[in-house]
Write a protein that binds this DNA or RNA. Sequence first.
DNA 1: CGTTAATCTAATACTAGATTAACGGTGCTGTATT
Length: 493
Amino acid sequence: MELEHALKKYTGYTSFREGQEEIIRDLVSGRDVVAMLPTGGGKSLCYQLPAYLLKGAAVIISPLLALMEDQVAQLKMNGEKNVIALNSFLDYEEKQKALSRLSDYRFIFLSPESLNSAAVIKALKQIRVGLLAVDEAHCISQWGHDFRPDYSLIGEARQMMNEAPCLALTATATSDVVSDIKESLHIPDAAQHLHSVNRPNIAMFVKEVSGLEEKLGQLSYYVRSLKGPGLIYCSGRQWTEKLSAFLKEKGVSRTAYYHGGMEKEQRMLIQQQYLNGQLDLVCCTSAFGMGVNKQDIRYVIHFHLAARMDAYLQEIGRAGRDGMPAAAITLYDREDIQLPLFMIEKEFPAEDELKAFLSAEEDSLSPRLVIEETHERFILHHLRFLDDLTREEKEEAIRRKINERQQNKTEKLMNMIKWYSTDVCKRTGILNYFGEGTLRPDFDKYCCSSCGADESFYFESSHTDQHKHDQENHWRSELGRMFKVSEPIVQKP
DNA sequence: CGTTAATCTAATACTAGATTAACGGTGCTGTATT
């Protein structure tokens, strides 16, 4: 009906992809929406079309500069000129100019940090905002509490946007992440368009190892056996470099590493080569992922464990986006828990550090005490809400916040450890953890290591092409059955 | 807490072994006012 007409008029598409129409319909009728769409499932259309149908500009919050630039380029390519990304790529003059004629733009891209800057707030107050979209909205839950606190302030900023409908978009929203998002954005009554977190075509294997030597042995075995392309997640930057060198030595060429400490151009190059199929394998930290839209990743190996279930799901979820079988393998060493435990400790200011910082802060003459950037930001962020308190009260309040966050993170880590250690079906474990029902048990063969799935099914086949062909056909029929079961949408009780 | 790189020491001439220090993830960002 009229939505399809608008779709054709503004984008040239003739029909919606699954899930898009309901989301857009809700937004256009003024409702807030939390939506989950698989990557590559046409997420950007969900804010682009409403931007044309609603009065006013669409403000889109994006976590990475690279993602912002991609979106801007895409819109411009489609002939939309009234697009701007208000970020640090603009110099002072360009930014002033853009802010002074902000009402000319239909699409305004912002990082949560820019959204919080005084100049941007002032300019936004003077225009009409028709839609607020938060892309990769799981970042609110993942980063908003500590690493990038500005993510937790989007809800406040929303108040100056004349109650424009709010769209939170993500590819993996577990139920606790969804409630976190709704609370943070102050959209308790948002319509939810969610799918199950289950990915039936990804088989999960947890392989217990003991010691580095055995782990490296297993890694080299799997990388040489599995059908690629693949991805290896590890916990440190140095590890990514070491593993890629190690694997090259073992004869796996076309391997590269990727982490947040590399030059931007180098990062882009690796990502691009991987996307183009010029690389078979990338050893990476958690920096690699968002914006990587590759359909045919066949396996993800965790060389180190993931500290949280939602992070784990996101990382393995990069495999098998084409719907074809893929494998997620964790090389689990009990000793590995020490590193994430330590990270949780180190991420927040220590007690004496907090004390010293606050007393230096109180004395306006002394220069600000130099502490780690993330620690400082955490303290300053929480100080914003504690203006009228004495120093002791402030200290106490922030200490409580730190404890709260550390407990929360430790608890999530422990749940993960339980999941790694148990013999119960891995898939059932995940679904139960997120309050979804248990799965029908007839995919055992392709389910997980606990169900006795056969890892060799994911190996590079040495069979003839005919065999390969048979196997793929076999998979198609099998998948048909699977997706029937993966349809149901998560309901809030 | 565990791994790795850097420095030290001992007994003897260049290297082996021991002790210590450093490091460990994710990314955005100008700013006060007439």
